[in-house]
Design a protein around this nucleic acid. Structure first.
Lengths: 212, 212
DNA sequence: TCTTAGCTGTTAATTTTTTCACAGCGTGAA
DNA sequence: TTCACGCTGTGAAAAAATTAACAGCTAAGA
């Protein structure tokens, strides 16, 4: 079972699509249909699903609820994952607000910030502590993963503390590449970079359209 | 000049790293050093930079300010890009707050939302209009790109309106894949998916650590 | 001036990812 | 029961991305 990052990405997306369909009462789906919804190819869907072990039926395609169950098992969603968020700026608070109401498998159990105005109170139901208390609190909370929304300058320092406290996965929004030991997984979300990609390719597409 | 998405991503990241270094007074950099900062390999850096046309010096590596200038030209940052944001929820407002103060090349000239409480006023200096006025406003503003932070249910509808108004690039935060005509570029940022990746791989890494 | 160390630019090899293509199967119809 | 359609699962081919390898160059030192 060696699934690439790309495959995991897509499997996660399939899971979301299937949840939506399941809620709409749809029962079966073909690789072709799932591919259309997930914006990839049917072959990709079939190949990706191989890693989950679930097999479809040549006549009816995949049974949505069973496939979803397989994906849940694959992603090992037994219990909720304990997460903390470091940086309670506007982005951090937006993320808390986003994950709080949803019954997701991620429990954001604490936020940390260096701004005294933000600490010592609840942010959307999540307690916010001062960054100086972080190491101590992490010791108690034992989070699995962390979301980092601090400025670029402090991201590396924060990551180091997180790793020392046993965090093995980081979702990093700061536009720097964190240096972490092997066996700590870092995923970066860099909005500026993504915007730049949009700017670049949209212009390229536009020019192609004008020329061709 | 056929740069892949991956290459564009990295070039954008190099640009950011170089800006930072430039501000610190560093003048030259080797591919090896840039690679370390951008978390990739030296060969990758050299290969990526080929597309910009800028050539380094075997003795001193790359001149940072000149390379940055080449990247600016490559990304064609003559003037600012006109952007709008659709959806002024917590994420949308966080993004406005993020891009406003920075002197970036992205001018977010308007926000749109369906919630009357948010419309008809400024959000962090950006005017927020009701979504019903969007088509009309887009006609005047002629934005190049759009950021979409509406719920998944309305994202497709919004995208359609944007495309009709001539937007050729969309940065989509909703967890659906938008159907747009060819020649419109869509980049997706899906926080839940990214978190799921972190959860999956961090666990895998942890298990590998325990077993090996 | 000549030598040398160590870099860049670029081609070639390798690895990874995607796509193709089709055997095999389950179902519904005859 | 038998047939045929159209799907899945998967090995093989193709394409894309990464890495290795090295010729060629530049500047510093002898």
């Amino acid at each position: 079972m060696n699934a690439s990052r790309k495959t995991i990405e897509r499997l996660s997306h399939y899971r979301m699509v299937l949840s939506r369909l399941s809620g709409q009462g749809v029962q079966n789906i073909y690789s072709r249909e799932l591919a259309a919804l997930a914006d990839c190819t049917p072959a990709q869907v079939r190949r990706d699903l191989m890693v989950t072990g679930y097999e479809g039926n040549p006549k009816h395609g995949y049974n949505i609820s069973e496939l979803k169950k397989s994906l849940d098992v694959f992603f090992d969603f037994k219990g909720n994952l304990v997460a903390v968020i470091v940086g309670a700026g506007s982005l951090g608070r937006a993320l808390i607000a986003y994950f709080m109401p949803k019954k997701t498998m991620y429990d954001i159990v604490a936020a940390f910030d260096s701004d005294m105005n933000k600490t010592g109170r609840l942010i959307n139901g999540t307690p916010c502590f001062h960054i100086n208390e972080m190491v101590e609190k992490l010791h108690d909370l034992k989070p699995d993963i962390a979301l980092v929304t601090v400025p670029a300058e402090s991201a590396q320092e924060v990551a180091l503390k997180l790793v020392k406290s046993g965090v093995s996965g980081i979702l990093n929004f700061a536009p720097v590449r964190l240096k972490v030991p092997e066996k700590v997984y870092v995923e970066n979300i860099d909005v500026t970079m993504s915007l730049e990609k949009v700017a670049f390719f949209s212009r390229q597409y536009r020019e192609e359209k004008n020329n061709g």
